[in-house]
Design a protein around this nucleic acid. Sequence first.
DNA 1: GCCGTTTTCGGCCCGACTGTTTTCAGTCG
Length: 594
Amino acid sequence: MTEPELSNAAVADALEELGDLYELDGAIVHRVLAYRSAARAVRDASVSVAALAREGRATELPGIGNTLQEKILALATTGTIPAAEKLRAKFPPGLVAVTRLPGLGAKRARLLHSELGIDSLEKLREAALAQRLRSVRGLGPKIEERVLAALEAIDSDPTAPATPRVLLPRAIGVGEELLAGLRALTTADDRIELAGSIRRQAGSIKDIDLIATSTRPTALARSLAKLEQIEHVSSAGKAGARARTHSGIGVDLRIAAPRQLGNLLQHFTGSGRHNAALREAAVRRGLHVSEYGILDDATGATDTCASEHEVYERLGLAYIEPELREDRGELDAARAGELPRLIELTDIRGDLHSHTIASDGHNTIEEMALAARERGYEYLAITDHSASHGFGNDVSPEQLRRQIELVRETNTRIDGIELLAGSEVNILPDGTLDYEDELLGQLDWVVASVHTSFGIGERAMTERMIAAIEHPLVDVIAHPTGRLIERRQPYAIDLDAVFAAAARTGTMLEINANPDRRDLPDVHARAAARAGVMIVIDSDAHRTRTLENMRWGVATARRAWLTAEDVANTRPWQELTRPRSDARAHPQTRARGT
DNA sequence: GCCGTTTTCGGCCCGACTGTTTTCAGTCG
């Protein structure tokens, strides 16, 4: 294994900074966008982009050409990018913070710098308090107020991000309350739907997008203010309303005529990047797409679409599922008729990762089994934590032996579902597991995962993970990156090497469906499946109710372009167990690959 | 800075809103 490269996150941060600096420098918007688009491609890549750049292959990523490849190479080899050095000398770092304030952007920040010498939030505050901002052309008293309010908010909670994001389940919960409230206040023929990143089933959500068709749009927009969840409405007209909930989530309601429902839903489902790419492609065909319709240059007429299917059809595309609308190749696939038939929740036949009171779960084996059967599952693996889990929840080898007996006994007692005796075994820092092979060999299903020592470095973590993958008794690696959405970055690991090892050995990788995790993340799950890795979607339920979390895992799988064939637990248990027995009978073959 | 069923140069989505103007630039999604 080679020396770890500069992480993709670090490369992406550098490109974003350079984009910000170029924007301050007055570069044309497309150049700035090129940096931001490249930063996203780098962040999403599952292989080391620095390593790609060394091989001259970074240009294979979308949005990265020769110029950016050279800059990435400079960063990887010298630790810095010359252009960034030059621009940093020109624009003080505090100025970038100024561009982040609401109502201020790069152009205004640049004006403030050149005309008032403002180079930090502190100097901005002084100037605003002295009412000097209004001396700059284009700025006035309202902007001064807004700036001071924003600075006040930062003072009161310096760690809070400017735009807090909430996890998908919470966003859906609030969104559905708003839907119900609005529907109760409107006439029966009005239609209101959730759109935006909620509809795309993203991991976290910045604001809630609602779309509606109504014959009385102004009344509908006003009724938003009457909902008990709404703290205040910042604007309302016949086109819609913007508001904020008491919980601090932004709400955007847009309204159009019923015949435009398809256009509106398509537009407000996004993503912004999907729409931008869609429109650019449409322009080449002489069509101009907006939320109100499709303008045809040839006829000068604007066609409206009552359904989204019509929108895509009018543009020569197959219908694209919302989860795929991220500008990750879906337009080319739709044009070529090569979109995947995405997995659905009903394809799932069993859950292979669950906990009970034996470790940190809250229900008994029997309770979990009955709840799984209630969901229509054919099988459930009981996989409590292992001998070194800590938190007072260790399962000693002796306890695991008793647990295996208990699972077997319960299995004979309960009809209609197959219970599997398993464990979620810790992968220790040196790559070994915390039960003896003799004991692991008695289990039907072995989940292995990292719960300690996240900071051992990329090389050590990759070797640790691959050692577990090559262990002949390990069936699946759980939550392979360790990330917690909006809370914890993934640990440093070479996923490309992990995927190669998993594909070679037949060890599966999990999409953990816990809504805090959704790990593997969508882009990585897609890369893993492409590399030939079999994916398992697990709830990781710690109580009967959270078996329902499976839906978030399926959502992630759909965002990863996965079909039912890509996911192991869409199959009957007998089909899963056969290749496993072979592997266990010939572990050497398995570890070396065949 | 990227990119090519018009193109290796000249394009590169679309509209709403705000605050400032007096017809529009900047910001935002």
